[in-house]
Write a protein that binds this DNA or RNA. Sequence first.
DNA 1: GTCTATACCGAGATAGAC
DNA 2: GTCTATCTCGGTATAGAC
Lengths: 218, 218
Amino acid sequence: MTRATTAPADRTRARRPSESIVADLLEAAAVEFAAHGFAGASTRRIAQRAGAHQPQINYHFTSKEQLWRATVDHLFTLMDAALPALDRPGPLGHAFVDLLHAFIRFSAEHPELDRIINLEATVPSARLEWLVATHLTPRFEVVAAGWRQLRSEGVGADLTAGEVWELITSFGAMHFANAPMLSLLGIHEGDGRSEAEAHAERVLAVLLPTATGRAPAP
Amino acid sequence: MTRATTAPADRTRARRPSESIVADLLEAAAVEFAAHGFAGASTRRIAQRAGAHQPQINYHFTSKEQLWRATVDHLFTLMDAALPALDRPGPLGHAFVDLLHAFIRFSAEHPELDRIINLEATVPSARLEWLVATHLTPRFEVVAAGWRQLRSEGVGADLTAGEVWELITSFGAMHFANAPMLSLLGIHEGDGRSEAEAHAERVLAVLLPTATGRAPAP
DNA sequence: GTCTATACCGAGATAGAC
DNA sequence: GTCTATCTCGGTATAGAC
């Protein structure tokens, strides 16, 4: 493949038509940052994975740090597009169930976001502060308000909003973020779409044990 | 402090009496590996934190990789010393409750181990294979056998052994491993010893909702 | 066993031709 | 905007005096 011109084809990497380089760099950066963390990831490898040259990262993103932030922004944009709103018309419980299913499904398809968040979560840093203030806090507020409303209606397990958030982001997302380890352990049935739905039901069995016709599997 | 000899005191680091260097290096390595991952941690910083010189790491541990494995071994040794056995005399349910309390308490006191595991869990590697085969699989087998026994006695929520393992290691341990993020989010009340007990009760409320006089808080 | 000096490599970032 | 060449820095590991 790679075009058959008269020029030597054994170039380090075929020249790119310059169209989607930024998008390709963001996608490659998500994989590398998720796999090795900010410090461990290298811009050389990111560029190589995207079929670009390393200095193009500095040209398009100024610095490695800016590339990291753009990558996180990009992944959250993808996630928002995949999640339904919580304040739509109809029963809040149904909206909550749908939101959780969509979140788990997204975590299965894009484990990179949860991995990146977990990699930053353990040590204070400017990146973590930015991540929490920019992306996590606003979303937590929405979920927390929804959960408190549900609880005031007598629905849901006896858990605080914070505990619900922790349960969803740890137990819910870790199943896919840590898939390589769980696979070696013999847990993790397979990455099929049905696996995401099954896992969402597991989480819901804990959060909404008796609500809206939902019950623990027999 | 640091001894007042005639020699210049502004040495990079005071000379060590050579007694506990290995132990100090292991402790420093746990902190640095937990904070930055294997690739992101640097042997220079580890040595500096331990009050040693960087080449001493290669002398005592041969390589960075061997230092990492020794660090993991060390942390698991600490954990084993802090956990009660599951097959002691008496009701298995009680032993299970005690084990979980001790595990959560250890996770609160030594969040480094869970952090190191999570940092490796997301990408296949020789280190991950070693970690799972050497340390995780044997312990998982014990917990899984205990859980299946409990279930056969009609005790415990309707969860597989794998799901119980995931719940404990993610929701149970993440509360302390990700404390910096949760603190910025406004979750996480404080690191007190009572916080560990409270969190263990939360996990048990999910795992053993109705067993042995245990019930969800009113 | 400890410490200094250093070899060697790969990192991020920049300059400048194209 | 792209690409090559290169600067500078920090990484791991090793040699050899003490």
